[in-house]
Amino acid sequence: MPHQCTTCGRTFPDGSKEMLSGCPDCGGNKFQFKPAGETIDADETTDAGETTDAGETTDAGETTDESAGSVTDTPDSESPRPDSQPPEAQTPNAQAQESKTPDAQKTDSEHIRDRTQEDIAQASARSDVVSPDELDQASRDVESDSPTGSDPDSSGDPEGPRPDIDDLRDELNEQFESIRIVSPGKYELNLMELYDRQEYIISLQEDGRYVIEMPDAWGISDE
């Protein structure tokens, strides 16, 4: 009984044309295929492959029962062609979803697993938003790691003060562009700026600081 109606259980021989227009007894149009002589084996393999197949066949709304890697789905339906088709080739859906050898299923499941993992990673990368706290933490980690991890930074410690002084010098130059401190002991002066400013520099400090006399509103500072 290669074909069996899933509703009433009536069986049809391979190649039977009775089932082409539905089950003559109950009118059902769902059949399962059981190749002759492989019934026992088929049952065994059904057990083995059931979980995998079950998940996939539910997509088509089919029931699998206990039997097999071969669920016939002919909803609308061309009835199966028992005479011509091997179990794997019954319907397009069945072909795509179920007609796999155990090895094929295995590799397929591996593909699926890989793809699933990849999808999860990608999906999280695309959809998750990093919170500000995490960003702060990450930057702190980088900062705290870098001095210990990298030689340039540790070797840069002795030079640490220099950039500060340079920065300070640049800042001073921007603020008080009448005197540009090129380097210690080297100055460039903008005479017009010095002349135009009400306040004037009383003394320059070695660290780049300076003291200025603030103008008094009405010249009391002359005293």
């Binding site: 002991g185 080297k186 520099i201």
Partner: peptide
């Protein structure tokens, strides 16, 4: 040099 620079500033003032 530093004092001279201060001097120029003072002269301009």
């Amino acid at each position: 040099s530093r004092e001279a620079t201060e001097g120029v500033a003072e002269a301009m003032h």
